[in-house]
Measured scan of single mutants.
Amino acid sequence: KELVLVLYDYQEKSPREVTVKKGDILTLLNSTNKDAWKVEVDDRQGFIPAAYLKKL
């Protein structure tokens, strides 16, 4: 599985998104959309803007 590093805090703005903190390391589920990547956070799945993430 692929991991990503969170570069900036992000507060979810819709039910399809998830809230993350800078420095979190998350499982990347889908990065086919260049604008928003799907990740898993504490058994929740949701989207975060790709600009907030860096592949490890």
Rank of each mutant, 00 (worst) to 15 (best):
D35G: 10
D9I: 04
E17Y: 07
E2S: 11
L7I: 09
G46S: 07
L5V: 10
D43M: 09
D9H: 05
L28H: 01
D24S: 11
L3V: 07
Y10E: 00
D42S: 11
K13R: 14
E17K: 05
A36V: 15
V41F: 10
G46Q: 07
V6E: 01
L28N: 00
L26C: 10
D9W: 04
I48C: 10
N30E: 15
G46C: 14
K54N: 06
L7P: 00
I25R: 04
L7A: 02
D42P: 05
D35P: 02
Q11L: 12
P15I: 08
L29R: 03
K13I: 07
P49W: 06
T32V: 10
D24P: 01
D42L: 12
N33A: 09
L56V: 09
G46N: 04
Y8V: 11
L56A: 03
Y8I: 09
Q11R: 11
G46E: 09
T32L: 10
L29M: 06
L28D: 00
S14G: 13
G23Q: 07
L5S: 03
S14W: 09
L29I: 14
L28V: 06
L3D: 02
A51S: 14
K34C: 14
L5W: 05
K34D: 12
P49F: 05
E2I: 14
D24A: 11
D42E: 12
T19W: 05
K34N: 12
V20N: 00
A50K: 08
G46M: 15
L28G: 00
N30K: 06
P49V: 05
K38C: 15
G23E: 02
L29P: 00
V39D: 00
Y52D: 03
K22Q: 09
K54I: 13
G46K: 05
A50I: 09
L26R: 01
E40N: 05
L5K: 05
I48A: 06
V39H: 01
G23F: 04
V6T: 02
K55I: 13
R16L: 14
S31K: 05
Q45D: 07
T32W: 09
N33V: 05
S31I: 04
R44G: 06
K38F: 15
D24N: 07
D43T: 10
P49S: 04
I48Q: 02
S31D: 14
A36S: 14
P15E: 11
Y10V: 02
P15D: 12
I48T: 02
P15T: 09
L3W: 14
N33P: 05
F47D: 08
V39E: 01
L53G: 04
V4L: 03
N33D: 13
Y52G: 05
E40M: 13
L29T: 04
K13H: 08
Y52W: 07
E40P: 00
D43Q: 11
K22F: 04
D42C: 10
T19N: 06
Y52K: 04
Q45I: 15
L26Y: 04
V4E: 01
K54T: 10
S14H: 12
L5I: 13
A50T: 09
Y52V: 13
E12S: 15
V4D: 00
K22T: 06
K22C: 08
K1A: 11
L7V: 06
S31C: 14
G46V: 15
K38V: 15
A36H: 15
A51V: 13
K38G: 04
A36M: 15
N30W: 06
E12Y: 06
L26M: 03
V39S: 00
D24Q: 15
T32S: 13
K13M: 11
V41T: 13
T19Q: 06
V4W: 04
Y8M: 14
T27R: 13
K13V: 08
Y8H: 12
L5G: 01
R44P: 02
A36D: 09
E12T: 11
R16K: 12
S14L: 08
Q45P: 06
G23K: 00
D43I: 05
E40C: 14
N30D: 15
L28F: 02
K54A: 11
V18N: 03
T19L: 04
K22V: 06
G46R: 05
A50F: 04
K22G: 05
K38I: 15
F47N: 05
V39Y: 02
V18D: 01
D35V: 11
Y10G: 01
K54D: 08
P15Q: 11
Q11Y: 15
V41M: 09
L53E: 03
V18T: 03
D9T: 05
E17C: 09
P49N: 04
F47Q: 04
R16A: 14
S14I: 06
Y8S: 09
L56W: 07
V20F: 07
E17S: 08
N33M: 09
T32M: 11
P15W: 08
K38R: 12
A36I: 15
F47I: 06
Y52M: 08
L56I: 13
